[in-house]
Design a protein around this nucleic acid. Structure first.
Length: 547
RNA sequence: CGGGCUGUAGCUCAGCUUGGUAGAGCGCUGCGUUCGGGACGCAGAGGCCGGAGGUUCAAAUCCUCUCAGCCCGACCA
């Protein structure tokens, strides 16, 4: 209708950032220096700049993480215990991850399919280790109908009890394996290269947004091969796909490696993972790829007749990444002002924020913004049109700007009457230098390069932080000192023997062997002596506290 | 499942020890002043104080039971 409602409106002050936080924040003395990535945009140490997220990383890292999830509008807790609602901005990031990976899966010959959410309980029982690993955390469906309980509520109808309970998939090896058993008869049917995008449920006791929730979204690849070599190759190939994606798209440096026996997927012969280091120097397993050998094939009778006419068990693999990657993204890049999106994954590359006072100004500024938006969208970045968002919502300018900072949009462009008059734009990047005025044509021309530079900066920054926190250690005393309470921690490369001695010591120090790197990363990769037993050791493993 | 703790307005909480039918800040709505900015003033909407029972003339406040959630541990993408 009339325009008044388009004019900026104003609400009360917003000083209070207290609340429960304040009581949970550690007292100053306890604020031992948690080493955090340098934050190029902060004015520290001249004055304590006001941060958009509180507490800061240094003050209380776990709480900071939660606040970033909230501030960036990524997700919120739901009415269901342990389950989260992924909000549009968070889901858009997940969609970006899906898109990037899905393309790569297709390029490596995989096809998507979909398997049931429910798995007959008996299926899980077939592979002994698998049962062991998952039985404790399964949601079980026992009835198929509700009825009034006579007290105004509902109850599962006793008459509708299932003969065999169904479990909600914690992972789908069993049901997919059973299906594959039907699909595979001849060596000519192989390989089978399938992926599914799905939700899974693991009834974890403690949950954290994105990092560990009861229900989560993921992708699980399942393949069947005629030979062990081929299956191993597939396992490693998909690990490479994950690593390439993590580093190039998410700007998250990762270490590719094999898991020790204790960390292996239940039922796998070998598990490989990509491990990333978060800003609090804890490791995050960001993706896994399993060589399942013939374990599942035998349990589920995935057999084929070979070229020679012999009946053989097939070799299978499985591999997956989950919405946990979003958590990794946050903890790799976010700062005390909220999320920082790597451009290749950012739901919006550029956000345009119009600034005006009167309706008259609004008209001219908006027209200018619209044309700038269109012009920017003609530019391409990474083979696609630059994603531009024009935020014309009727809320306070400062508020609006900070919302986008907190959401981590790589480039912000503020357009006011002065810019319109001078053919310019006021441009700020999420990390890097202070915002500055810029010629409009220059902005359009340089936008792709700016995005590319931000992407690179983010990777370099994360890698630098990881490398700075990585050490080679050759004595148990040093190892213990490194992980002693109050120490900052990090990634330790050390010789080891997989076994009870190592596991006991790690447990004591709350450390885990993250993986045995496939490639020497700190140069020193020769044989040595196990820290825990003194035995001869061929390889080093990476040890760290982990999520 | 052990050990701590919390349930009061949309959010974060105060009030409870010393019972007398409900408060703050933010958010929200309206008007105004501001504004290249996370501003301010005024006015307003919004709660049967987790649930059930008990004590009492009177319960958010005391007692009992119950439900739910959080944190710390053991387990995990």
């Amino acid at each position: 209708m009339s325009l008044p409602d388009r004019a900026p409106r104003y609400a009360g002050a917003r000083h209070s950032r207290r609340g429960r936080l304040s009581t949970r924040m550690p007292a100053p003395v306890e604020c031992r220096a948690v080493p955090i990535l340098p934050h190029p945009t902060s004015d520290f140490p001249l004055r304590m700049a006001k941060t958009a997220v509180s507490p800061t990383r240094a003050e209380n890292y776990p709480e900071w993480y939660q606040q970033v999830v909230k501030a960036a509008d990524l997700a919120e807790n739901s009415d269901v215990r342990g389950c989260m609602v992924i909000k549009p901005w968070g889901y858009a990031i997940w969609e970006g991850i899906q898109r990037g990976l899905d393309t790569r899966f297709k390029e490596t010959g995989h096809e998507n399919a979909y398997f049931p959410l429910f798995i007959p309980m008996s299926f899980l029982e077939k592979e002994a280790e698998h049962v062991e690993g998952f039985a404790k955390e399964c949601a079980v469906v026992t009835h198929h109908r509700l009825e009034p309980d006579g007290k105004g509520g509902l109850q599962p109808a006793p008459s509708a009890k299932l003969e065999e309970p169904l479990i909600v998939r914690p992972t789908s090896e069993t049901i997919i394996g059973a299906t594959f058993a039907r699909w595979v008869q001849s060596y000519r049917d192989l390989p089978i290269l399938i992926n599914q995008w799905a939700n899974v449920v693991r009834w974890e006791l403690r949950t954290r947004m994105f990092l560990r929730t009861t229900e989560f979204l993921w992708q699980e690849g399942h393949t069947v091969h005629a030979t062990s070599d081929e299956a191993v190759e597939e396992t490693r190939k998909m690990l490479d796909v994950y690593a390439e994606f993590a580093e190039n798209v998410m700007a998250m440096p990762v270490i590719k490696g094999e898991k020790t026996a204790g960390e292996r997927f239940p039922g796998a012969v070998a598990t490989y993972s990509i491990e990333a280091m978060m800003q609090d120097r804890k490791a995050l397993q960001a993706g896994t790829s399993h060589f399942l050998g013939q374990n599942f094939a035998k349990a589920q009778e995935i057999k084929f007749q070979s070229q020679a006419g012999e009946l053989e068990f097939a070799w299978t693999t499985s591999w997956g990444v989950s919405t946990r990657l979003v958590g990794g993204l946050i903890m790799s890049h976010a700062d005390d002002d909220g999320l920082v999106c790597p451009p290749r994954l950012a739901p919006a590359h550029v956000v345009i924020l119009p600034i005006y006072k009167s309706d008259e100004e609004r008209a001219t500024v908006l027209a200018y913004c619209e044309s700038l938006k269109a012009e920017l969208a003609t530019q391409s970045y990474e083979g696609e049109a630059i994603r531009v968002k024009l935020d014309d919502r009727d809320i306070r300018g400062g508020d609006k700007k900070w919302q986008w900072v907190k959401r981590g949009v790589p480039i912000r462009v503020e357009i006011g009457p002065r810019d319109v008059a001078g053919g310019g734009a006021f441009v700020g990047t999420r990390i890097g230098e202070k915002p500055q005025g810029m010629d409009r044509a220059k902005l359009v021309a340089e936008a792709p390069a700016m995005l590319a530079q931000l992407q690179q900066q983010m990777f370099d920054r994360a890698k630098q932080a990881r490398d700075d926190a990585s050490v080679v250690i050759d004595s148990l005393a040093e190892f213990e000192a490194f992980f002693a309470d109050g120490q900052p921690g990090g990634l330790v490369y050390a010789h080891f023997t997989d076994g009870p001695d190592m596991e006991a010591k790690c447990k004591e120090l709350k450390v885990t062997p993250r993986c045995i790197p496939l490639e020497p990363l700190l140069g020193d990769d020769g044989p040595g002596k196990c820290l825990f037993t003194g035995a001869k050791s061929e390889r080093r493993a990476v040890f760290a506290r982990a999520y």
